[in-house]
Design a protein around this nucleic acid. Structure first.
Lengths: 258, 258
DNA sequence: AAATTACCGTTGCATGTGCAACAGAACAGC
DNA sequence: GCTGTTCTGTTGCACATGCAACGGTAATTT
């Protein structure tokens, strides 16, 4: 099973859906439930739990299952969010509204991804808007129930996992800071593309951004990004067409990214 | 008692030491222990615990008390870190080494500050070097003992608190990202100074950075920063001399910071 | 198939800012 | 006192990049 968690970017755009339609007859639903448990087990939040413990825990915590269509807003920035969500199928993206109102892409996540966890139960308002990129199935768990210990070993394991999950997100954000700290646009582009190639495991890959989105992500102007990519292409460093990239000179790119 | 936690910047440079020398006769030491407990109670990590619970928990977890002289390295970047530290007195600072080797200030903390918590227990190596700005007293708790539940209510409370603590640090980092995303140097300076004034609670304050450090923090050139500060001073927006600042036109600064 | 929209590359221009170099002030040590 | 070091402000210059505008191509809709 293809599980992606905490992936700040994710170049895999085609997700193999285990279910195209969440509303199914009861017999299929049981089978679906089984699939969900297996997926949840491989999640950073629920790793290390047996299926029995997990099922019991979910019931005690009042976990609910929701389906959303593409484009639906799951979490509205500025309004309080009381649930942790785990993606069962589909993709979601989190964006921030910049002070000037333009959307700033933060992260995208596929099945197994956990969102809404970095609120610390402090009844804080979410700084990001979470929307469904594709039709989604999501499991929602009230944050209070998640944090409030019931004394079970499983629940304590989940708390530990939660610490891990949030720490991982911290490090992802820290890596983004590293990107933003690079001085030249060329360095940013090189660092970003190298990280994407690393994630994809090959030198040819697609990124989950349009040019305009990537420009916002790297905090630069869209035309400047196009210009720089054109230059790098002419210099033989890479090939690119729209969202597709092929890295040609890894060593040079590594040097450029400092 | 003056408690500072999770302060990414902190303009208070003069810390009133409760103890100038940690090595004292037994009678004083007990009194010191009492002070420590009170301070720890007001910490984000140990809030909500009674002194009895806290004392028992610390003993069970194998917490140790260490003193460091100014300049000593508490955590070396790149080497694994197995302990969470809570500052009892003094100040510490965390810096990163940029790819080019220059130090990049990350955070400073005073009494009550918690560090080494964002490692997720995954035996990760610390990305930052933590050093003592002043002579320090620190309480160290093995991360494994902290995460591994013993079934006590106090321990579960600590786990919850740990989630909160890490979440808070995530948001601090997110705010730094916001700073870095601002397009012009003037906007960065305005946003930073406004946040410092907000923290200090007054328009006249000192920042914990030299010009060169602030330039690194805002990701700009030192001379460019001096130039911009000079311009803003001539325009009547603020006054500055070395690390001291006085904001003169709050409205204008707010507009500039977008 | 036509029309509408979104996406992308290109280019000219203005300028903010990195870079290097220098000098004076503050500070520490002797 | 003197000396060396660190911190800071200043300035000239080059250039990377933001900005605006335009046209072309791909994608989507009717």
């Amino acid at each position: 099973m293809h599980v992606q968690q905490n992936s700040e970017f994710d170049s895999c755009l085609s997700i193999p859906f285990s279910r195209s339609c969440p509303r199914q007859p009861a017999r299929s639903l049981n089978r679906t439930m089984q699939n969900d448990l297996t997926l949840l087990q491989s999640t950073s939040l629920f790793s290390g739990l047996s299926q029995e413990d997990l099922a019991g825990l979910l019931a005690r915590m009042g976990a609910v299952h929701r389906s959303y269509n593409r484009g639906v807003v799951l979490v509205q920035a500025g309004s309080p969010n009381h649930s942790v969500g785990i993606i069962l199928s589909g993709r979601i993206e989190a964006v921030r509204l910049a002070p000037d109102g333009s959307p700033l892409p933060i992260t995208q996540m596929g099945p197994g991804g956990v969102f809404g966890d970095v609120l610390g139960g402090s009844s804080l308002c979410s700084p990001v808007t979470v929307t469904a990129c594709t039709p989604c199935d999501v499991m929602l768990i009230p944050y209070q129930r998640l944090l409030c210990p019931d004394g079970s070993a499983a629940q304590q394991q989940v708390l530990q996992n939660l610490v891990r999950t949030i720490s991982d997100k911290y490090f992802l954000l820290a890596r983004r800071v590293d990107l933003l700290l690079l001085r030249t646009l060329r360095a940013k582009v090189s660092a970003y593309l190298l990280s994407e190639a690393d994630r994809a495991g090959q030198l040819t890959f697609r990124i989950p951004f349009t040019r305009a989105q990537l420009a916002r992500y790297l905090n630069c102007d869209r035309s400047a990004l196009s210009r720089e990519l054109g230059r790098m292409q002419r210099e033989g460093l890479l090939d690119t067409y729209r969202s597709s990239f092929k890295l040609r000179d890894l060593d040079a790119l590594r040097k450029l990214s400092q």
